[in-house]
Amino acid sequence: MTNGTNSATEVLENLKLELRRGCLIVAVLAQLRTEQYGYTLRKALADDGLAIDEGTLYPLLRRLETQGLLVSQWREEDKRNKRFYRLSATGEQILEQLLAEWQSINASLSKILQEA
């Protein structure tokens, strides 16, 4: 019984993780329509209910930058060097398309749930 419960919890956690993964990318891209550095971005996401740890955010930012969706710049602020990120022109286009896709999925899902 306990094993079954553990397994169900594990499955739920994995599914939640999968569900979150795609959403996080959209959220990060959307937040970076205005320039921010890592910590403020994390804080902003957490304040909006999407907490993300350092080990997840920074590799994600690198990946999005490598894909050309973000641009970054090291700059001094408050006597400390910080890396600022913002959406690139390609990133803006992709974000628009992603949001349209997300809205379409959301609409489909709402329809399916209503039918059920």
Binding site: Y37, Y58, R62, R80, N81, K82, R83
Partner: peptide, 20 residues
């Protein structure tokens, strides 16, 4: 080079957390 970058960024994040 990426290692230095990541460490610098993580350090900045931790310091910002402490400061906050």
């Amino acid at each position: 080079e990426r290692q230095n970058d990541l460490i610098a960024e993580l350090g900045e994040d931790l310091r910002s957390q402490i400061e906050d």
